[in-house]
């Protein structure tokens, strides 16, 4: 494997020294491009109180290509599917090399506060979110309690 680019070293250092509130990202001890991430559910959202595990991987041509991010903890959200894949524009066509790991994780946290059922990845969840928001929010709370609390 080629030497780690300066950009990745710098970003990792900053993530360690000035962590973002509510987010922890730790590089794997065997692979500096693989991060173990924990995002806390935002206040006043159905995910409040939950701790959500994610994995984040920086591909070979990072930062020219977007990092690959996936939820490992099960979550009931219209823009996140059963496999934990995330529908977020900056991870796809709106990626810019000027974005960083921290901005990506902040955007994901913001997505938890503001689900967007009009641009769904999990169709059944999005459908319920549109026709019966109260029930969808109840489900999200239930899943948070069941999968994202304790351990």
């Amino acid at each position: 494997m080629t030497a780690l680019p300066r950009r990745i070293i710098k970003e990792t250092q900053r993530l360690m020294q000035e962590p973002v509130p509510g987010i922890s990202a730790v590089p794997d001890e065997n692979n500096a491009r693989y991060f173990h991430v924990i995002v806390t559910g935002p206040e006043d959202s159905p995910f409040e109180g939950g701790l959500f595990k994610l994995e984040l991987f920086l591909p070979e041509d990072y930062p020219m290509s977007a990092p690959k991010v996936r939820f490992i903890t099960k979550i009931y959200h219209p823009n996140i599917d059963r496999l934990g894949r995330i529908c977020l524009d900056i991870l796809k066509d709106k990626w810019s090399p000027a974005l960083q790991i921290r901005t990506v994780l902040l955007s994901i946290q913001a997505l938890l506060s503001a689900p967007n059922p009009d641009d769904p990845l999990a169709n059944d969840v999005a459908e319920l979110w549109k026709v019966n928001e109260a029930e969808a929010i109840r489900n999200a709370r239930e899943w948070t309690r069941r999968y994202a609390m304790d351990n």
Binding site: P5, R6, R7, K10, E11, P63, P97, A98
Partner: peptide, 9 residues
């Protein structure tokens, strides 16, 4: 001297 916001150099 300038800092490039992509490579941080």
């Amino acid at each position: 001297f300038l800092r490039c916001s992509v490579c941080l150099s």
